[in-house]
Design a protein around this nucleic acid. Structure first.
Lengths: 201, 201
DNA sequence: CGTAGAGCCTAACGCCGTTAGGCAAACGGC
DNA sequence: GCCGTTTGCCTAACGGCGTTAGGCTCTACG
């Protein structure tokens, strides 16, 4: 094995510090809320002065953007780690549970990823692509379950609403799993009814 | 008719100015986003210096609170102005359409009223009561349609999700009316199925 | 007419994100 | 092994934010 160029060591160190900053940011955001993040506290948490953060991120929005990317990568990884499920309905249920679980377990992250509440923050094109891939995975599941495209928006709205409602009500426990299953059932029953009507025409 | 005491004239004037400030705040919030509201622009819009706003509101959060109250009163008024609908299902559909319409027509207002995205802002007890009354009106409609309490949360989650989804996707037109009707149908079908199963036990 | 207070002002404070500029340590070429 | 460059962090400061202190002016009222 070749010796690593020293240059890479530096880059590694740099990436490690970036990761440390992001970890601290997540911690602050979880504790105080998404919009309450501020660079002075963040810098203090990683043992720096505020302006030094600008060696690693161009702006506060760039930090949000990096967090946005991290969150989406995490979600994508979980989707891909899901055991294969041959039953299309089971797969839809599985994916929906994953999404709701992901949203509920970290409300601040859900707010960053799925709501647009920070004024002036738009995810960069690169990070947005990952978000798109996740949407595609969801669409794949919907399609396999026999749901037609005109219902996709309705479905995402319903599932997001579930997450939002659980977060807003500080709902504990795992009652949400029943909700998810209920919603999958009712949605499938509804679109199947319409599909049949459509076919019989 | 007795002459109005001058004292009341002053109070009237004061209330008028408060209303003017709130109107300007709504305008700014609609144009720039909820969190982008700032006292300097707001003061300029009503022809004052920023500190003068403190003669009318104790803080920026007090302004949000007054807006929160106004928004809820508006929604309540619309609910009460709804023509009476004897058909329980029709009434549920009617109420749901009203809610979604209300949310979509002013996303910033919906964000203020139904999401908790402003750090540190909690509606005061007084204003919160109005919000509760609205929830009760919704529950009344659900009950009349034969839906049991355990489904209330699920329903509010679904309807809020619809609003959120329409806002997030900048969806224009009135496609949402179809969505609302779809959702009402599927929800009723679902809970009726469960009701019957429950009864047959 | 004198006094109280309402309504608005200017000045300033502390916090925020951000920029400018400096200084020491680490690096890479000779 | 020395020297210029680069890196990583620093201090100082700017403009914008919400907010407070304090003063001026004009109106209402005894």
């Amino acid at each position: 094995m070749v010796v690593e160029p020293i240059r890479d060591r530096r880059a590694e160190r740099r990436e490690a510090t970036k990761a440390e900053i992001l970890d601290a940011a997540w911690e602050l955001v979880r504790a105080e809320g998404l919009a309450a993040l501020n660079l002075r506290d963040l810098a203090a948490k990683v043992g720096m002065r505020p302006p030094s953060l600008y060696s690693y991120f161009d702006s506060k929005h760039a930090i949000y953007d990096a967090m946005f990317l991290q969150g989406n990568l995490e979600l994508l990884a979980r989707y891909e780690a899901l055991p294969v499920c041959d039953d299309p309905v089971g797969a839809l249920r599985q994916g929906s549970r994953l999404f709701v679980q992901f949203g509920i377990e970290d409300p601040a992250r859900a707010q960053l990823l799925f709501m647009r509440t920070i004024p002036g923050f738009e995810p960069s094109a690169e990070t947005y692509d990952v978000a798109k891939r996740i949407v595609e995975l969801g669409i794949e599941r919907l399609t396999r379950a026999g749901i037609r495209p005109e219902y996709f928006d309705l479905w995402t709205g319903i599932v997001s609403g579930l997450v939002w409602q659980q977060i807003a009500n500080d709902a504990g426990g795992d009652r949400w799993t029943k909700y998810v299953d209920d919603v999958v059932d009712m949605f499938l029953a509804h679109v199947n009814k319409h599909n049949k009507r459509g076919r019989s025409k």
